[in-house]
Design a protein around this nucleic acid. Sequence first.
DNA 1: CGCGAGATTGACTCGGGTCAATAGTAGTGG
DNA 2: CCACTACTATTGACCCGAGTCAATCTCGCG
Lengths: 285, 285
Amino acid sequence: MQSQPTPEQRNATSTMHSTPMEAGRQRQGRLWSNLKEVCDLLHIPAAVSINSEELLFQHVQFKTGQRVHTIGQAFDTLYIVNSGFLKTVLIDEFGNEQVLSFPMKGDMLGVDGIHTRHYASEAVALSDCDLILLPFKKLTALGRVHMELENLMYGVMSRELVREQAMIGMLGALSAEARVARFLVSLADRFAAMGYSSKLFNLRMTRHEIGSYLGLTLETVSRTLSAFNEIGLITVDQRTIGIKDPEALKTLRRLPPSRSRTKAAGAKQKAELDAAGDDQVLATA
Amino acid sequence: MQSQPTPEQRNATSTMHSTPMEAGRQRQGRLWSNLKEVCDLLHIPAAVSINSEELLFQHVQFKTGQRVHTIGQAFDTLYIVNSGFLKTVLIDEFGNEQVLSFPMKGDMLGVDGIHTRHYASEAVALSDCDLILLPFKKLTALGRVHMELENLMYGVMSRELVREQAMIGMLGALSAEARVARFLVSLADRFAAMGYSSKLFNLRMTRHEIGSYLGLTLETVSRTLSAFNEIGLITVDQRTIGIKDPEALKTLRRLPPSRSRTKAAGAKQKAELDAAGDDQVLATA
DNA sequence: CGCGAGATTGACTCGGGTCAATAGTAGTGG
DNA sequence: CCACTACTATTGACCCGAGTCAATCTCGCG
């Protein structure tokens, strides 16, 4: 039940007891989803012409650290994140990881495998995850019957393309501080879109992974977060991040003349923050 | 606007005189292409079940400096480059250009517009160009009839996605020299794929544009090219580049990406990485 | 022929990478 | 419960790669 949720296990579970009116769908374990649910998850308007319950998509669970797919593995299915957090990485010729994205609820995985029929990246669960399987064959076959599926696919792929373009722009043009700032804002927005707090959240990834994602070292990420903390833009406690000034983060290009940042200024900021909320900032005086 | 052939012109042209074997296609100006030609151009195996000559795609010519589409413009058509060279750019909040790609023969433009129905980037001709128009509506409509069209689209979009992933990896992990080196190799390969010489070619873009594309300044690009020239890897004369040692360019690096020390592969690689760190410019795998 | 855009090269600066020491945190087992 | 270990995060000191500023050179074009 734990180490590897294989298709066999899922069949065993789902066929174990099938409630007739549920048409084979296992509700409580969230083992199946219909097209409507998939579209909702992707934030794509599903001009619902289909409620056919035979059009169900299987769920699979992955535990922290498990790999959803690896580079070079034969491609046959796409995944949609129903819950949990992951990272996708490229491995260079020396075995070094390059983080490409941090997929979470509503994001699609595996699209890079379509072209060569082999996944071009590796997806790893950063927390326990629940993913929906979209067998690509099935998808394209259904695409000809239900044209919203087709548009869904185009939309998702195009969206992903735009996201990567923005990423390239960021890596090419922004300073370390601006990258970290935008990363935090982006995370906050995504949490907000998922219904979580955009003001206080936990990072699911290490500094190292953030650094890889942003083209920086973990030290620079750590230092930058500390600097933001001193200035009062955020609060940092390990992986707990509090967003204090989203506007400033959004428009930040460069940090104010860094040399003049004295201890006194830092202490002042710290005091304000402590007054504002009950948080333990450990920036020792 | 400029000389943009309209759909009416197409109908006029195609019905004007129909040479039986040409089936209404205007040869001399390369004004039309059928699906087979489009697939060939994209290097996608067209399991040819269609030779229907009513399935023709219009060409459009753009002159150097002209914009094919701009950011925010309503999306309705994709483009395939039949000849010529272009750049696609993002414009940031201060009007600065960020070059995203240098499309040439066989590349597709406009895919980033599908998601929001507005182009997310701007495409500019760096030379006189001949593009094939693929009206998106028409394309999706045909996709349901001829499923190879569908696969074509998925394939092209996925390919583009993989390309951008590689770009992100490069920007995130490689030194200036390695980026320039790989850029040259990539250009050489693409020229080779088009039937041109991969040993001697002309850059269609300025140092500034190359720098923007690679996340560097034009001075760094210029200096790096000069350095490669001195070392004998290439010859440089303004925009004329001669590739002398493609292998060296391909494997050239600098900073061992100490950023990512992967647990599994990391230990194995440590010695090599450290050794590589003492290397100067050249490194052989 | 002169003008302006592009390219090259040098001198200087500094952002961020590297190396290293320390400390906080989580998981494991006694 | 604590001790032990491995991982993660924070911080400081140092320095090098690449950005910035600026002068000069080349070339294409009206």
